[in-house]
């Protein structure tokens, strides 16, 4: 029976069940093969598209691998100095409260050089959404140790592994901002499997919906891979992430409706 179905019969516009959103440009992504940035970009743009917010959205690209996010996200975008995306987002949202504003930041940008801006935007309860891509490394500059690099994890500036005594501990920024009264929704997601992608997309949608409620900052961490920085094949890096990153950075909601989730 299957043999009777021709390719022509299937490849008709009415049979499309998944197609890249037009809010992703046709530019070839500058990310390495298998990098979660591309998936995260696409999910955010799918949500903006599905919610009909294309003409009302302003995004902010950070410094880091996603410095060129504005080349790929087909909405109005600003490119911020290293770590300062929350300052941009604060001003934009305060000056145009009816717009949808998001800051897209990596771990070096958000959790090292931009810590003050992150904490204070969260603490003021600014009504924008932060997307925090945590891959535990500085990808763009070539795999240096990040504030989120795991204990013992090797990087180009911790070649013998992160020594906690001399290099300090990895910072759990998402748990930290969840403690602040200004955040309303704080969650940690991943985008490496179909199931994770579906959950992450729901979380992104929820974050944008919360922004429209004007109740405080919505913060979505996406734990992602950096196969180049970790020096692994893409699929291998996703498995390594499950085994090593997730135990330290457990997935799931941390704060919902302004209340911290009780850990059982």
């Amino acid at each position: 029976m299957d043999g009777t179905i021709t390719k022509e019969a299937i490849f008709k516009p009415e049979n499309i069940v998944y197609k890249k959103t037009s809010l992703m440009t046709d530019n070839i992504l500058s990310y390495c093969p298998g990098c979660g940035h591309g998936t995260a970009h696409r999910l955010i743009m799918e949500v903006i598209d599905e919610m009909g917010l294309e003409s009302e959205t302003i995004g902010i690209a950070p410094v880091g691998c996603s410095v060129l996010a504005y080349e790929f996200m087909n909405v109005d975008m600003q490119q911020a100095a290293h770590g300062r995306a929350p300052a941009h987002a604060t001003a934009i949202k305060r000056l145009m409260p009816h717009k949808t504003v998001f800051a897209y930041q990596g771990d070096g940008d958000l959790a090292a050089i931009g810590t003050a801006e992150t904490i204070h935007a969260c603490n003021r309860g600014e009504n924008f959404t932060t997307f925090f891509i945590n891959n535990g490394i500085y990808g763009m500059t070539g795999g240096q140790m990040a504030p989120t690099t795991l204990p013992g994890m090797k990087s180009s500036t911790s070649p013998y592994g992160r020594d906690l005594k001399s290099m300090g501990h990895p910072i759990k920024m998402t748990e930290l901002v969840a403690q602040l009264p200004g955040t309303y929704y704080v969650t940690r997601q991943a985008v490496h499997t179909p199931a994770a992608v579906r959950k992450a997309k729901k979380a992104i949608r929820k974050a944008i919906e919360i922004q429209q409620m004007n109740v405080g900052l919505s913060f979505v961490e996406i734990v992602s891979n950096c196969n180049s920085g970790w020096k692994m094949a893409p699929v291998q890096s996703n498995h390594w992430m499950e085994e090593n990153m997730f135990p330290f950075y457990p997935l799931g909601d941390i704060k919902v409706d302004g209340k911290l989730i009780e850990k059982k």
Binding site: Q78, A80, H88, T90, A91, I92, L95, A116, E117
Partner: peptide, 19 residues
């Protein structure tokens, strides 16, 4: 808005001026 630093202030200007 009273910002957390001069660094934040000037980057808030960037955000607002960009709009």
């Amino acid at each position: 808005l009273q910002a957390e630093s001069e660094v934040a202030s000037i980057n808030m200007l960037y955000g607002g001026a960009g709009c």
